[in-house]
């Protein structure tokens, strides 16, 4: 075996799945399907448990920083599995030389975001490594939440059937382009701000007010395209998306046109899709639109029967194509 790890294996697409399957799942023996949080049933009830590492470059970007991202990301992984997020751990790997004021600014915003999301940071760890052994700051957060047993189906999507609607809570692509812009990699400045936000307020509301929530997943690395493909594979159905109804902010569209990115593949940090029964879709959409993080929510497509489990796109000009799983490096170190 002379294979080496390349950046592709961290991009959240096909190769990431292969790495998880061929290494982690092989040796750790994780059960199918892989969801954002593990669901653990114990004598005291049902809890969800999740963990994530953050290596975003740069550590400060328009709309957030690595710490806020870490809290939002972990809260969202718990929230989309149907749970109420409760407790979070935070571990810091710090490169020597990091200005203390940067660390304080990051930790302060983590505390602020945790308070907003109603979670408590209860344990943590700190390591400092020599210059060059990590890049400024890496953070790992883990979190637990409490899951109402009647919502266990949500992370697995096992109740989804033909005709169910897919709703998104707002425009896609902002986080990826905000980070890219902050890297000074673009020869122009962009007005794009990361969508980094905790979504447990929104998920809590829709689950309380509708019994028709069949699936939720946040749209991080690999973007909308990756999540839709994972979902189609998991439920062994097809998905049809109407391109024109997927919200994309104008500056994001413009930058994507210029650089050849497809916003449907770009990372987000405050976006999710919700699958609902068709009869509940309008009601859920209205609730989402009444919440700050869902103001621009839209119904973007539906679940269809398809033997190949393809995600197809009705293009905005009336054509048709598939929306495939992303492959290869999109933009490394976006979260």
């Amino acid at each position: 075996m002379d294979e080496i790890i390349t950046l592709n294996q961290g991009s959240g697409g096909r190769q990431t799945l292969k790495l998880i399957d061929g290494v982690f799942r092989k040796y750790f023996g994780m059960p199918e399907p892989l969801t954002d949080s593990a669901i653990i049933k114990d004598a005291g009830g049902t809890i969800t448990f999740t963990t994530d590492s953050y290596v975003v470059d740069p550590i400060f970007f328009p709309g957030g920083n690595i710490g806020r991202l870490a809290i939002c990301g972990t809260v969202n992984d718990l929230a989309v599995s149907g749970a109420v997020p409760k407790y979070i751990s935070a571990a810091f790997i710090i490169e020597e030389g990091l200005p203390l004021k940067d660390l304080i600014a990051i930790v302060e915003s983590m505390a602020g975001e945790a308070e907003k999301a109603g979670v408590r940071i209860v344990t943590g760890d700190t390591k400092v490594v020599e210059k060059g052994k990590c890049d400024k700051l890496f953070i790992t957060t883990s979190g637990t939440g409490i899951l109402d047993p009647s919502r266990e189906h949500i992370s697995r999507g096992e109740k989804i059937k033909q005709g169910d609607k897919i709703i998104i809570n707002g425009p896609v692509g902002n986080h990826a382009l905000a980070v890219l812009g902050a890297r000074n990699k673009l020869s122009f400045t962009t007005p794009v701000v990361s969508d980094c936000a905790s979504l447990n307020g929104l998920t809590g509301r829709i689950m309380e007010e509708s019994k028709g929530i069949l699936f939720m997943r946040d749209l991080t690395r690999g973007g909308l395209a990756a999540v839709l493909n994972e979902l189609a594979g998991m439920i062994r159905m097809g998905i049809r998306i109407d391109e024109a109804s997927v919200p994309v902010d104008e500056p994001v569209r413009g930058i994507c046109e210029m650089l050849g990115f497809d916003p449907l593949y770009l990372a987000n940090e405050g976006k999710l899709i919700v699958v609902t029964e068709s009869s509940e879709a309008q009601k859920v959409l209205d609730i989402m639109r009444s919440v700050t993080s869902g103001k621009k929510a839209a119904i973007i497509g539906e679940v269809i029967l398809d033997k190949k489990n393809l995600v197809t796109l009705d293009t905005s000009v009336g054509g048709k194509r598939i929306l495939d799983m992303p492959s290869g490096t999109q933009l490394p170190r976006i979260c």
Binding site: L313, T315, V317, G318, G319, K320, R321
Partner: peptide
Amino acid sequence: IHRFGISAL
């Protein structure tokens, strides 16, 4: 051509 699905048109 492929991105916009022209062949369907």
